[in-house]
Design a protein around this nucleic acid. Structure first.
Lengths: 207, 207
DNA sequence: GCGCAATGTGAGGAATGCCTCATATTTAGA
DNA sequence: TCTAAATATGAGGCATTCCTCACATTGCGC
């Protein structure tokens, strides 16, 4: 419960066999964390689901938190790579503001659709090591800044208060998408939401 | 851990003494839930902090979940009463769209500032009874609908797709405010955020 | 005051969780 | 093929949690 101190892997897997073990543990942990939350995913259950003994689990992870941290790193890296890729794609040709915004929204949807429940556990559940929480928020924020700078440079944009508008832009898209993915209303589809959102932001960024 | 079934109070307090006990338990529980999260707040600790024995706690709450449920009911009721009051105030005189929106944003800020950490535990932490989760979301949604209808009736508003726009409106304000209260950036203050947000929504609702 | 109902107490049972360690199996490589 | 290193096993120790129960205290109505 109270945050553990040691988070680095206890031993590095070198043979193929042990790599598979670690992989199985991470996969199982990801499932259990998102199905049961942090407390519900016990190390014994994770090991069982991975088809591995608890002992093996503790060969590679010094404690339960370390598993979560490993998952977080991975989740962050793949997720952000995804967004950067989509944004880069959109920047290969000079685009009108509207399509730039659309790319951003679509990228954020992709980011959140990639393991949304795990995302929730990582970002919102309480008893995570606070250092990890900070790290996650920081990386989320870095991406936000990147996007904001990108938009600010766009000729069609007129920013009254760049910092504030960037904050609103990124937070709005992030939270709206986050909630939409996690609790999709029956009568609203992703496409219409995207369009309406883009329209609102487009108008707003023009001042 | 796994959701308990019985959630109603085991026994109703009749004398003043026991009412005080129940109150103390709820206060202590609220503190511990928001400081430690759901799992960290043990029944023993709640009882201790309330200055009461575990036995007394279990006289009035059949299990740990029931305490959370009681808190949730209370939190919802006071929070929503607060918002309704503020909105009613704003409706005593016919106001321009802009000030109506401002009232809404201000009301939402008030709602979230009322025990924001407890709010987070209730709305976002995983191992809650799912019936409770649904109940919370439903009431949040009801309020949203109310606000949406109210706005739709306003003469200055031109809604392309009422359902969708209401959703975006409420979700945007709710999430933005929620995040702002829980993780306030150093260089942004509530007032500017409110103004910028109102401007964006105002523009958007005019079509 | 008296007696019964209401309320309060806290040691401890049963369940569960995290993690260790003595031991067994597998693999690399000489 | 043989050996040492790498990897895997899982019973169980220790801690913690939720909750019960047998008993003590308090307050209300007479």
């Amino acid at each position: 419960m109270s945050p553990r101190l040691q988070l680095k892997p206890r031993k590095k897997p070198s043979q193929a066999r042990s790599k598979a073990t670690v992989e199985a543990i991470l996969v199982a942990a990801a499932q259990l964390f998102r199905w049961q939350g942090y407390a519900g995913a016990t190390t014994d259950r994770i090991a069982a689901r991975a088809g591995v003994s608890v002992g093996s689990l503790y060969q590679y992870f010094p404690n339960k938190d370390a598993i979560l941290v490993a998952l977080a790193e991975r989740h962050i890296d793949t997720g952000f790579a995804l967004v950067r890729e989509l944004l880069a794609e959109a920047l290969t040709h000079v685009s009108p503001l509207e399509s730039l915004l659309r790319s951003f929204v679509v990228a954020m949807i992709a980011l959140h659709e990639h393991e949304p429940e795990l995302h929730r556990v990582l970002f919102e559940e309480a008893p995570l090591p606070s250092s990890l929480r900070r790290r996650l928020r920081k990386r989320e924020n870095d991406l936000a800044t990147e996007v904001a700078e990108l938009l600010e440079a766009h000729p069609e944009v007129r920013m009254r208060n760049p910092r504030l508008m960037a904050y609103i832009l990124v937070q709005t898209v992030d939270s709206l998408v986050h909630n939409f993915i996690l609790h999709p209303p029956k009568d609203i589809d992703a496409k219409s939401l995207t369009e309406e959102l883009v329209r609102m932001l487009d108008q707003h960024l023009r001042g």
